[in-house]
Nucleic acid binder design. Sequence first.
DNA 1: TGTCAGGTCATCCTTTCGGGTGATTTTTAG
DNA 2: CTAAAAATCACCCGAAAGGATGACCTGACA
Lengths: 149, 149
Amino acid sequence: MLLAYGFALAALLLGMKWLEYRFLLVQHSFEIYAGLIALVFTALGIWLAGKLTAPKIRTVIIEKEIQATIQDDYSELLRAEKISRTGLSKRELDVLEQMAQGLSNQKIAEKLHVSLNTIKTHTARILEKLEASRRTQAVDFARKRGILS
Amino acid sequence: MLLAYGFALAALLLGMKWLEYRFLLVQHSFEIYAGLIALVFTALGIWLAGKLTAPKIRTVIIEKEIQATIQDDYSELLRAEKISRTGLSKRELDVLEQMAQGLSNQKIAEKLHVSLNTIKTHTARILEKLEASRRTQAVDFARKRGILS
DNA sequence: TGTCAGGTCATCCTTTCGGGTGATTTTTAG
DNA sequence: CTAAAAATCACCCGAAAGGATGACCTGACA
């Protein structure tokens, strides 16, 4: 960089010497040359500044969201704890899960290979144990108590 | 800025005129003056560059993981987006929310101060728009699509 | 061995839902 | 201002859900 600047200076002097004998320096006034030099070296200075100055570093912090993931077995324990507090049996939980998926009693009966009446009995117990009066409410309560995902 | 530069140039010329008659220009060679001018204006160029050019900025991106806490108005936008995709109206969303709480159509009607028939119409549209056949299913779909909390 | 909880199934009856259709009034958007 | 969308209400009918009750079977546990 400094070399380039030195070269530019040297080139200026040589160039002037050359001009002096080729086109007769006296033809132009000293001020003209001075002005030209000033312009050229101002430009050179601007260019130099661009090369020499260190870039400012701006730190941008991007906040990236991550999901809070609870470990499987731990959540299983929690789940079992929640279930035991509501007093739901395994089968009732099965039915509750299907219920939460929006399946009708008929569909649940088909899926679990039992009769519709059985599912109705289970749902009745579920409503009773969760102190709900409608299946949507039972699902809502179950969610709020962490029984369902 | 350009004015300052113009003034500097003018000052140079005047200064030279002044030098010319005060210290006799012939005492020094033209090259000396040219070199001085070059130096001064290089410095001026560098200074100008600092003032005129946009600062160089290197952006360093640091990704920081945070917990996903969605702010109210932001989540409102998201919510509106989700809603618009399903095509639910405001009122239908109101009904859907009450539905998700496990309320019966009758209770929802009382809570929203409209007739049961109105709620039935809304629920019918909700089921239609969410492509569900039962309210539990509609609630489940709405949850999976992020429409409900 | 007997009781007890859980799972299964059933019947009867009432309430709630969901589907279909139609209509009037606001509200919104072009 | 006007057309479209939203909100309101109504009636009918069949399907699903909910409440109550009773019964049978099985595995676990004292």
